[in-house]
Amino acid sequence: MKELKINTKLTKEILVGFIQNETRKIGFKKVVLGLSGGIDSSCVACLAKEALGAKNVWAIVMPYKTSSQESLRDANMAAEKLDIHKKIVDITGQIDSYFKNFMGASQIRRGNKMARERMSILYDFSVKYEALVIGTSNKTELLLGYGTIYGDMACAINPIGDLYKTQVRQLSSHLGVPDRIIKKPPTADLWIGQEDEKELGFTYNEADKLLYLMIDKRLSDKELIKVGYKKDFIENVYRRIQRAQYKRKLPLIAKLSERTIEQDFRYPRDWGR
């Protein structure tokens, strides 16, 4: 879809500026990220290196015993290619130790726990290396809610949260992310054989085109049907976006006073910076 095409050079310039500017303003010189071997974290690692220099980027690779060897290999390859700091922290011990007490825990519980374990490790290394946690969730995932709240969605700044998956692919290719990483099927790799597109029931290509028209261009359902989208698909995607709204917001606060945080106590985050 030609509307989803982006000027990758211009995008890179803005995102590199974003990382430099917002990192410095928060008072950091370094960033730390979870590097999975997938396209999103590889893309962010490239941008962070461009912005801050290789020596200021920490990539933490956090495999679990069932994580695919391919992911681990690709994460290592990406880190080595970029020449950024890399640390491998195997989370098997802490995950298995926890679930020993909850043997029948569902895949979702296990997956969420892993995502949050990784988050807590990133925030621990954030203190150790004085590095800001930089996020790797793209716009497609954020809209569809395909992520764990306070898990992989947790971060201080996110350079790719306004780029759809298909746009992250274009940018990654421009940034020199290895082809193998760009072309392999996207996976959260929380359990064996998991693939985003199988789990979602549609491809990112299909979702992105619809999301672009629905969100960016504000087409109504009627108009979307007219340009060829199935009602079921539209409703499915719409429901997902609506259901995941809580993941994109701060917790609700019961209003009592004259000035309540977020309601009528409204300051930018870059307040005084």
Partner: peptide
């Protein structure tokens, strides 16, 4: 503010 990234040369 910068907005409207497309395939075009400029925002």
């Amino acid at each position: 503010p910068s907005r409207g990234i497309t395939a075009g040369k400029k925002l």
